[in-house]
Design a protein around this nucleic acid. Structure first.
Lengths: 197, 197
DNA sequence: TTAATAAATGAACGATCATTTACTTATATT
DNA sequence: AATATAAGTAAATGATCGTTCATTTATTAA
């Protein structure tokens, strides 16, 4: 028996993410990935069954990292404002500190891979956020909202828009925009103004 | 001189969008596109210089269609609430009636193609929305917001989240969600609650 | 020290890729 | 009716694709 080289497997993940983000789904290939990692293509097929498996597995792993980071220290029993603030801070921190991962997740959401990757991973989140929403309405910290989706759009949509602007920094719409805490807290304040009774 | 077959060029655009959305950037190829359109690959190279040119040109065209549709009947002189409502309605209508185009635009935003496609197309929009924002603040129809990006995130972020849920309908997060006017107007109402003095 | 075994590889497979070339076809203008 | 010219094509180019296979290498357990 020989142990799998953890450094090599991590290198593969890291370089795969980099290549996918920088060159897109077209532009990414197994042979290029192997070359960049200085390993044999065949080694990739020891780690993963096929290309789709590689992309899917890495996608699942990265999005789980993001979900976990976003919910760090969160509890459905937190007051509505505190809970929302914590999640905004967590999510923003993750996106800033894991730029490539955040971009990859965004790419995967808008690709045919999404169906496999995000199939079940969201039930857990939905449960937790749904409970938080329910508590908040019951405690009159939040105006009555029946639809989870309406709630989500209002409570998190603006943050994701800000993060997107930041990611697009060098191109397109977000030119000259820099995300920082001041911008985030100002936005959050107005979101809370709308959502609280 | 022989005239270019408009029906054929439109068929190419339509099928290219369909293939890109349904099979992703990997999964799309010039040869497959030609076969689906029952034309020769070489014909594609009469219409477009190369693959990237094809994707970029179609992307520019579709996003211009979307921007134009979103701003239909809009004027910076409309009251803040009226202007916002109109844009929400326009944008929602476009996304529902042009599902594939809306999905393609979303894919392109999160791809390396974005830099070429959306390079300049946004200055116009930013001008118009910026003016509307300014007027609204001056007329005290809107709380004072300094940053255009903060404003955009709050005013449009929730709508785009709703549309995304609707697009993801069959997969992932948006399972069982159906976009309709009631949902849109309820969300808009709360957005306005936050944004108006 | 050795036997067992999984990790890792180099080299190859046929398929498909983007793109080009030499050629034919259709039509607008004369 | 003839000519010019762009549209359109069939077939091929070499490169690269995803994947496999026979073989070697490293390491664990005995």
């Amino acid at each position: 028996m020989r142990k799998r080289d953890d450094i090599k497997t991590e290198l593969v993940k890291e370089q795969a993410i980099k290549m996918l983000v920088e060159t897109g789904f077209d532009g990414f290939s197994m042979q290029k990935l192997a070359k960049v990692c200085n390993i044999s293509v065949a080694t990739l097929y020891i780690y993963y069954q096929h290309k789709e498996d590689l992309i899917s597995k890495i996608g699942v792993e990265e999005s789980n990292r993001m979900f976990t980071a976003t919910l760090k220290n969160f509890s459905s029993d937190l007051s509505f404002a505190d809970g929302l603030k914590l999640q905004w801070e967590n999510r923003a921190k993750f996106s800033l500190q894991n730029d490539l991962s955040a971009r990859l997740i965004e790419m995967l959401w808008n690709s045919p891979y999404a169906e496999n990757i995000f199939e079940n991973s969201n039930n857990h989140i939905k449960d937790i956020l749904g409970k938080h929403l329910k508590n908040a309405v019951a405690n009159k910290q939040l105006i009555p909202i029946k639809s989870f989706f309406v709630f989500w759009s209002l409570a998190y949509g603006p943050l994701y828009a800000l993060i997107r602007f930041h990611q697009e920094n060098k191109t397109a719409f977000g030119k000259n925009f820099k995300f920082n805490n001041q911008v985030m807290y100002q936005t959050l304040e107005i979101v809370l103004k709308g959502l609280t009774p």
